[in-house]
Design a binder for these strands. Structure first.
Lengths: 129, 129
DNA sequence: AGGCCTTATCGATGAACGTCAATACAAGTG
DNA sequence: CACTTGTATTGACGTTCATCGATAAGGCCT
């Protein structure tokens, strides 16, 4: 259940640790395609709330049975959104007996946060000169 | 040209400065809807590259005439994507003579980065135990 | 004014998305 | 084994989206 096709940010170039972020250097198309998949996964209010509920859970994981009733949506719809979040590499899940538990994959959100962070609030202009 | 309907992150509750971020406290629906609009704007490779090109420009602004030829897309399509980025509050633009210049609105990317940042990289788990 | 260049808007079209009801699958209980 | 509960998958349907060609709007130049 944990080995589905993920897109996983920044797997392409291999140069993960160095990447200077979206706001410093123009993205090449491959990076843009990868990043866009993750941002697209966040581009829905239901998925954002799901992710938020999962991430903010004290124990680190949430049962689907606690997520589904929080929305005025059918169970298949919630399941579908969870699948998209998982394919984006934002969360993962495991079945334990009857129930399925989801948790955050912080590497992905960390990477997004890094990509959206400006280097030093204006130091770029000097370095570029 | 700068006064179109923007969605602008976090304008709803009014409690902008405090917001603890997506990963700490469950998002309410209104916040989720607002945030989702911005993430959706980032959920396309073309728009990500446009934003990146604009943000990483040394002078702080880019002429549309420099953006359009960088893509294998028609000029109306690029114009459309720029409009979406602007409506999401990520960029703004101004006409100067013949040309139109776009620049980044860093408040919005800053806010997204903040929303995706974990409080203290693991302090939550201890507090929960 | 007329012509040319740059950018935005309009209208159409095919693809992707969000949603649901129905159904399948997994696992515990009698 | 049949029955029940929890979750995922399938198939369908209406809406939204990305894209284009055509056209409009803004602005320089002669």
């Amino acid at each position: 259940m944990s080995n589905q096709e993920r897109v996983a940010v920044g797997r392409s170039g291999g140069a993960d640790a160095c990447c200077p972020g979206l706001l410093t250097v123009p993205l090449d198309e491959e990076q843009a395609v990868d990043l866009a998949k993750v941002f697209k996964a966040l581009g829905d209010p239901v998925r954002l709330r799901l992710l938020s509920m999962i991430a903010s859970q004290a124990g680190g994981e949430v049962c689907v049975c606690d997520l589904t009733p929080a929305f005025d949506l059918s169970q298949p719809t919630i399941s579908h959104h969870l699948k998209l979040l998982r394919q984006a590499g934002l969360i993962d899940c495991e079945r334990r007996g009857t129930w399925v538990y989801y948790w955050l994959l912080p590497e992905t959100t960390d990477r997004l946060a890094a990509v959206l962070t400006r280097p030093a609030q204006g130091a770029t202009a000097e370095a570029a000169g």
